[in-house]
Design a protein around this nucleic acid. Structure first.
Lengths: 133, 133
DNA sequence: CAGCATCCAGCTTGATACTG
DNA sequence: CAGTATCAAGCTGGATGCTG
């Protein structure tokens, strides 16, 4: 007997973000959420401690960072390394999977950053065309 | 005198998502937001009408889709083509910039989808370790 | 079909205070 | 330092009804 391969190309993936109930949607949200994206971006350059992260991700509150890190850790994208010293020291770093995800995310982020001149022009045109009416 | 180049490598980009006030942050949010990401993903395969989009992006409300499309159009990522017929017909399609962004976004989405087995395992481990305590 | 305007429940978020 | 707990406020987003 042969293995059951639905279609050689564009096979039905088991996980599909476009479906409401698919768990991949929540992971994507953790990754792309306001703080998730910036946290992964910051960690992509190396491991950081809690308050280092807080300073890097401008505007994040203690609570949100904590919450974000928990979600990313739970999804296996971030590894938490705690030293039971006094004062305590906790380092956060990307897992191998986290690095893969972060790399693609950074590619997107850089693409957006590099496009901002165009975006800003588009916004002006849009607003001008609207304000006129 | 020479031109003022801060550093040859890793120059200070004019736009930086990590800074609270940078406009690139809002664009990134439009792109990666729950509905923004799925809308760009859906449009990456070709132009779609309003209600086609609504069906593709499972779970999006009329209001949210409308709002999302406006934001993406304003940022110059989506082009809106309206035909003044009766009944009206409006097609949405990606701009060249939108296609660049969508491509990177899709790369991220596929990466997440393909990683879901690992993610789900990580979640189980995390929950097990927590539930025990 | 392709939307816009309004209302409002509830989730998200930020501020503050406290713990180990 | 590295968080957790709590609470008020505001924004998000869904439902509904209406327009061209």
């Amino acid at each position: 007997m042969t293995t059951t391969q639905p279609r050689p190309e564009e096979q039905d993936l088991p996980f599909n973000v476009f479906a409401r109930a698919c768990p991949s949607r929540s992971t994507l949200e953790h990754v792309t959420g306001r703080w998730g994206a910036l946290t992964l971006g910051a960690l992509s350059e190396g491991s950081l401690r809690f308050n280092e992260l807080r300073r890097r991700v401008d505007g994040v509150s203690e609570k949100m960072l904590s919450q974000t890190l928990h979600a990313l850790e739970r999804d296996g994208l971030v590894h938490r390394e705690a030293q039971l010293t006094n004062p305590p020291r906790v380092d956060y770093e990307l897992t191998p999977l986290g690095r893969e995800v972060a790399q693609r995310l950074l590619s997107l982020i850089r693409c957006v950053e590099d496009s901002m001149d165009t975006v800003l022009e588009a916004r002006e045109r849009y607003d001008a065309a609207r304000g006129a009416r």
